[in-house]
Design a protein around this nucleic acid. Structure first.
Length: 166
DNA sequence: GCCAACGTTGGC
DNA sequence: GCCAACGTTGGC
């Protein structure tokens, strides 16, 4: 079981939008390292949903992977900003996963708050120059963040596929 | 709006 | 393969 962090700009698609949608295709990732992480994701794994390019930036909620990596259809859509003319249908360059809302953090975890915790000093999100939109998070880091946010990791881990309310 | 960090592109 | 130019990300 691995844990992840997904970045999104809330002005474009925030955690509230994921809750409203229920499930969403996580498409448009156009960075090879991030793509490789997407391809490692397995159904049932949990993700922190991080709001970037906003004030304050921080973790807003938890999502679950509900479909493993499959070809991102936008790469073949000439009208999409994510179109990639070099990608071939028989060997797609880019992948997406489907994620579902699990629970909003009762207490939004700001970037500043994350930075003050010594146990999170290894968190990739906090490393200098980090720009990846999909990142791995250790189990312990994940636990610290969701519990600081007011959720129980043990409760999140029971009943995969089930949407919990806080 | 600024700017540091970093990925990608393309000429050579 | 090198590397300068350029575009993007994202915090502030």
């Amino acid at each position: 079981m691995k844990f992840w962090l997904l970045k999104s700009e809330p002005d474009v698609f925030g955690y509230a939008d994921l809750m409203a949608a229920g499930t969403e295709a996580w498409n448009g990732v156009r960075n090879y390292q991030a793509r490789n992480f997407l391809r490692q994701m397995q159904v049932g794994e949990l993700c922190l949903f991080y709001h970037s390019s906003t004030r304050p930036a921080g973790v807003a909620g938890v999502a679950r992977v509900v479909r493993a990596a499959y070809p991102d259809d936008l790469q073949f859509d000439g009208s999409s900003p994510y179109f990639d003319a070099r990608s071939k249908p028989d060997s797609p360059s880019w992948s997406m996963v489907d994620v579902a809302a699990v629970a909003a953090l009762p207490h939004f975890q700001t970037l500043d708050a994350l930075r003050t915790k010594p146990e999170l000093s290894g968190l990739r999100l906090l490393q200098k120059g980090n720009r990846l939109s999909v990142l791995p998070v250790s189990a312990e880091e994940f636990r610290i963040i969701v519990e600081a946010g007011g959720l129980s990791l043990d409760r999140l881990l029971v009943g995969p596929g089930e949407v919990l309310s806080s």
